[in-house]
């Protein structure tokens, strides 16, 4: 399955990665090379095999419902690019 440029653009948009017109051909080619490697997988017979998501196949541990965190806003926001009145600022969100 070779990717077309438009598909690469769509993927880049889904992943919110800016991609310049100049980068497109090279990116498309590299991605297709990688997909070529990956597609070798399709030859493997996996009939009746259950997918394995976690190597150990253990189960989720549950945490007691208790408040263990305190307000650390000032410390956490010292590393934020833009804050005001305790809020993180982003370009206007339109709904």
């Amino acid at each position: 399955m070779a990717l077309e440029r438009t598909e690469v653009e769509k993927i880049a948009h889904l992943a919110r990665l800016g991609l310049s017109e100049a980068d497109l051909p090279r990116t498309t080619e590299t991605l297709n090379n990688i997909l070529g490697l990956i597609d070798r997988m399709q030859a493997v017979d996996t009939t009746g095999i259950e997918p394995l998501a976690h190597p150990l196949e253990t189960t989720q541990r549950l945490r007691a419902d208790a408040v263990t965190e305190s307000n650390q806003r000032d410390a956490y926001q010292t590393i934020a690019p833009a804050v005001e009145e305790g809020l993180y600022l982003v370009p206007r969100v339109i709904e």
Binding site: L3, E7, V8, I11, A12, L14, A15, L17, T27, L31, I34, L35, I38, M41, Q42, V44, T46, I49, E50, P51, L52, A53
Partner: peptide, 26 residues
Amino acid sequence: IMVGTYALSAGYYDAYYLKAQKIRRL
């Protein structure tokens, strides 16, 4: 990121992600 985004995207999930996880079990 792009390979992963593609592998999880609608229509390709079974052929890529799920297939890879089955091989993982093998």
